[in-house]
Structures are given as structure tokens and as C-alpha cells.
Write a protein that binds this DNA or RNA. Structure first.
Lengths: 136, 136
DNA sequence: CTGTTTGACTTTATTATTGAAAGGAGTTAA
DNA sequence: TTAACTCCTTTCAATAATAAAGTCAAACAG
């Protein structure tokens, strides 16, 4: 399905998705159009889901990076799920997990105050365990 | 520091980082060169850390998405840290955290067998708690 | 009040890239 | 052998990026 050239293309696009097809072609020993055709195939097959940027969230003021394990008491998760939908400004991701807890939230907060407020509102719907990221 | 136009630029680039500067300019009501200058400023200031792609890892065979909380018994973390450096093919991220555990690992595995093997080797250096992602 | 500087933008013109079309080489199957 | 297919290259027209010059308004010093 994917050969070494495709893997190399994915690798290079991961490092710099704004590279020109011509330049990417040079890295994988193909011409621009050939490279472009391969990239289009990777898009169509769904291997490449999209092109995006890495944003330094700390520079936008979101300095606190937290993982929150959610334990819902109730069997009805809807109140919890609709609550987190209202908190998209903080949420990076919400994962349903097996193991310890029901969900794992990855969040970024600009201050302890706003995190505290979030946690208080969260507590109306579920219990949680908080882990703060110190370093990556 | 950042005005609404910059925020809009970041938003559009997050959705599609391969958009042309001309097209991006139309979305924020600027010309191509003006947009390009703003993007360059965002790069220089470090707000934009890089351009990348979203890869569907499941299509590459990495179907198992796991979060692993690490609890090291020993105060010397070096053996653990050098072990995970050898496992980069599975590791998405390693976070040092406060709270429950010392580290949080985010990993992707192609099979239960390989995950099991990873966990057995991991267990030589640290205890862990495993959470498997069921849905995002 | 006037003149200067600065920053952010537009316009213009050159250069580079993209994308479409045509064609070649190698592989497979009837 | 021939036809169909895939994957690539070459060519060229359309488009975008980039550099340079010019415009405009705000801030500020004399």
C-alpha cells in the first residue's frame, strides 16, 4: 500500500507541510507533478487527514497544560458531555478510555483561577483526578 | 500583541496550512503580501512553531492508542528515560506530570502483541497504569 | 502648526510554482 | 503481440510568491 517514498513524503510533510511539491520532490527523487500526484493519493486514501500548524499555546497565554481523568458516578454521561462541549476554549481533546476512569481530558488553561472555575463546574457532573504537565 | 486578524489567520492555518497567502488574505480582508508579512511575524515571534500534517495513524497500522501513567519506584529516572528513548516508534509524547504518577505517556501500537512486549520491557524500569482509548 | 518618522498596507513587476495535458517506459493479462 | 494500466517525465499556460516602490495615517518632536 505505502512504499518507502510515501513514508518519506509523510515524514517531510510532518516536518514542514508548506514545502513546495518541487522541493519535496527533490527530497524523494521525483519531479514536482509526480510528487503532487502521490500526495493527492495520500489525501484521497485518508492517510493525510489535513494540513495544520503547531501553535505555541503558552504564547497565547494558555500556560497550564493538564490531563484530567474523569470518573462519572451516573450512568448517564450526557450532562457531562454537553458540559465539555461548552468548554472548547480549554479543551484540546476528550478521549473515552478503558482502564482507570471513563474519559481522559487534555486541557490548556490561561490561569489557575480559570482552571479552578472549570474544575468546580466539572465537579457538578463528574469526579476527576488532575495531573498537571511540568515538562514534555 | 495579537489582534483579531492574527487570530483569524491562526484559525485558518490550523484548518488548512497549505492555503495560499492570497486566499488566506481574502479571508482576512488583506492582500497576499500583507498576509504573508503577518504570517512571517507570527513565525518569528514563535506563535507559529511549525507547519505539519494530521496523519491517520490507524491507516498506517497503529490502531491501539494508549495513555500510560508511569510510577517509578526508584528515585533515579534515568534508566526509564533512556528506555523510552529507544521506543520512539510507539511514542507520541512523554509528559512529566504532578499528581497521580511521575510521567504520562501517550503511545500508539500496531498490535496487542507489540504493546504487551513494550509493557513487559517498561515494567523492568517502572510500574504503570494503562488506559486504552476507545473513542476520541 | 509643520515636518519627520514609523508601521502597516497596496500596487507593480519579476520570479517561481502549480496544475493540466501529452507522451514514454515497464508490467500484466488476454 | 497487443491492449490496458500504472507511474513517471516533459512541456506550457495559469497562478501565486516575493521583492521593491509607493501610499497613507498616526505619533511625535521642533
Amino acid at each position: 500500500m505505502l512504499d518507502n517514498t510515501d513514508i518519506k513524503i509523510l515524514d517531510e510533510l510532518s516536518k514542514n507541510s508548506r514545502i513546495t511539491m518541487k522541493e519535496l520532490g527533490e527530497k524523494v527523487h521525483l519531479t514536482g507533478p509526480a510528487t503532487s500526484a502521490r500526495v493527492e493519493k495520500l489525501e484521497d486514501s485518508g492517510v493525510i487527514e489535513g494540513y495544520t500548524i503547531k501553535i505555541n499555546q503558552a504564547k497565547l497565554g494558555f500556560n497550564i497544560h493538564a490531563f484530567i481523568t474523569i470518573i462519572t458516578q451516573s450512568t448517564n454521561h450526557k450532562p457531562y458531555l454537553s458540559f465539555i462541549k461548552t468548554q472548547e476554549q480549554y479543551l484540546v481533546s476528550n478521549y473515552k478510555i478503558s482502564g482507570d476512569g471513563c474519559y481522559l481530558l487534555e486541557c490548556k488553561f490561561p490561569s489557575n483561577e480559570l482552571m479552578n472555575q472549570f474544575l468546580e463546574e466539572l465537579n457538578e457532573h463528574a469526579n476527576y483526578k488532575l495531573s498537571i504537565v511540568i515538562n514534555k
